[in-house]
Amino acid sequence: MEQNPLCSVLTTCNNQKRQFGSWGVQQEGSNEFVSALAAGMKAKLIVEVASRASPSTIALAAAARQTGGRLVSILPVPVLDESQEVIKNSGLKDQVEFRTEDPSKILPYCENIDFSLVDCKDENYARLFNLLDVNPTR
């Protein structure tokens, strides 16, 4: 039986988590759910605002690969190198565009977002929801 490429990527994600330590507390299966949801919606433009690359980043990049889309991951500058390495090791670097500017300055230029994930660990991120230009058909 042929293995689903998404399962392979998410296994890589779990291996990355073991290698680089815990990436935070998440519900089991939540990354698979997020990836399946974005892929099932056939999301072409996926936008993530986060404090660092995480299993969710890999899951969203895997969804972008399945749909032929791309993931714009907006991160702080200090974690850029580490985040790029994680994505490179997952084999998904062609699906991810990293941006390090202030999310409130980048999001207005991201039009018709099909799927977004905003890491709300920092209460300042909650204000970003108003800046999301979501695709009304998704």
Rank of each mutant, 00 (worst) to 15 (best):
107 L>V: 10
97 E>A: 12
129 F>V: 15
115 F>M: 02
103 P>R: 08
127 R>E: 12
60 L>E: 00
61 A>K: 13
39 A>G: 03
1 M>K: 03
50 A>K: 00
25 V>F: 05
56 S>D: 03
120 C>L: 15
63 A>Y: 09
91 G>Y: 12
21 G>L: 01
22 S>E: 08
122 D>W: 12
131 L>N: 08
23 W>K: 02
22 S>Y: 05
85 E>V: 08
9 V>E: 04
105 K>L: 15
64 A>N: 01
119 D>G: 05
114 D>L: 03
118 V>R: 00
47 V>W: 00
22 S>H: 03
42 K>R: 09
53 A>P: 05
99 R>D: 04
76 P>R: 13
66 Q>Y: 02
132 L>T: 10
129 F>G: 07
123 E>C: 13
7 C>L: 11
51 S>Q: 13
115 F>P: 01
106 I>P: 01
124 N>F: 11
58 I>Y: 11
11 T>W: 15
108 P>G: 14
20 F>E: 03
11 T>S: 09
48 E>A: 02
46 I>D: 00
19 Q>V: 05
132 L>W: 00
129 F>A: 10
43 A>R: 00
51 S>W: 04
97 E>C: 10
9 V>T: 14
63 A>V: 04
5 P>N: 11
129 F>Y: 09
14 N>I: 03
28 E>K: 01
72 V>K: 07
103 P>N: 04
74 I>K: 05
37 L>I: 06
